[in-house]
Simulated assay, not measured.
Amino acid sequence: MGIAITNQMIEVSYDNAKKVYHKQIELGKALDAIVAATGMGRGSALAYVHDFSQMMQGNEYHRTMNTRATEYFLLNILNDYGKEYFVNALQAAKAHTEYYAKQGKGSLRAIEELVQRLS
């Protein structure tokens, strides 16, 4: 099992994901920054940056984010971008839980409950 995802990793990933989304930094440089600042694995950093982009567009994402990170991303999207993008992000998180269940990997009950609570 890999390194546990810390609050710092979540926050730095979110900040860099925003920069990538707005084309203020290249993906590779953002991943380097996340890894250097937090020690997060590059694969996890890539997943979080990608998941942010999918959330902003309301698209299903396939790489799992922990519940704490999902909540942080959802609430900060609401704060930073408003209700329209928040609704997209909720839709993406819901689609992610459905995708995960369809893969036969079980359910993401905590994330399902989070989406329900924030809807």
Rank of each mutant, 00 (worst) to 15 (best):
14 Y>S: 08
44 S>K: 10
102 K>A: 12
10 I>Y: 04
9 M>E: 02
76 N>S: 00
27 L>H: 03
53 S>I: 12
32 D>C: 11
17 A>H: 09
108 L>A: 03
72 Y>P: 11
105 K>A: 07
105 K>W: 06
21 Y>S: 12
92 A>D: 04
66 N>Y: 02
83 K>N: 08
97 T>L: 15
94 K>M: 09
113 E>Y: 12
101 A>H: 14
113 E>I: 05
40 M>E: 09
61 Y>F: 13
113 E>Q: 10
63 R>E: 11
83 K>M: 15
115 V>F: 08
78 L>H: 03
16 N>S: 09
49 V>L: 05
85 Y>M: 07
87 V>K: 00
111 I>W: 07
27 L>V: 06
21 Y>E: 12
94 K>W: 12
23 K>D: 13
12 V>S: 08
71 E>I: 01
76 N>M: 05
83 K>R: 10
17 A>N: 11
9 M>G: 08
116 Q>A: 11
96 H>C: 10
69 A>V: 03
22 H>I: 03
113 E>P: 15
116 Q>Y: 14
80 D>Y: 03
41 G>K: 01
17 A>L: 10
34 I>L: 08
28 G>E: 06
75 L>Y: 01
11 E>D: 07
104 G>K: 05
76 N>C: 06
117 R>S: 14
62 H>L: 13
99 Y>S: 03
11 E>K: 10
13 S>W: 07
49 V>F: 04
33 A>M: 04
36 A>R: 09
22 H>K: 11
60 E>I: 08
45 A>G: 02
103 Q>K: 08
111 I>V: 10
16 N>T: 00
72 Y>S: 01
40 M>P: 02
37 A>L: 05
58 G>R: 01
28 G>P: 13
107 S>C: 15
112 E>A: 11
27 L>G: 01
95 A>N: 11
44 S>Q: 14
66 N>H: 07
45 A>K: 02
18 K>D: 09
39 G>E: 01
111 I>K: 11
58 G>C: 07
35 V>W: 09
70 T>M: 02
90 L>S: 01
68 R>N: 10
93 A>F: 04
34 I>N: 01
63 R>W: 15
57 Q>S: 11
27 L>F: 10
55 M>D: 04
48 Y>M: 15
68 R>F: 05
68 R>Q: 05
83 K>F: 14
18 K>G: 06
48 Y>N: 05
36 A>F: 11
35 V>S: 10
18 K>Q: 09
55 M>S: 02
35 V>E: 09
59 N>K: 15
9 M>T: 02
26 E>Y: 02
17 A>T: 06
87 V>S: 01
106 G>M: 12
46 L>H: 09
105 K>Q: 04
104 G>L: 06
113 E>D: 12
50 H>K: 12
58 G>P: 15
62 H>F: 15
9 M>A: 06
38 T>H: 07
42 R>Y: 00
92 A>W: 05
96 H>P: 14
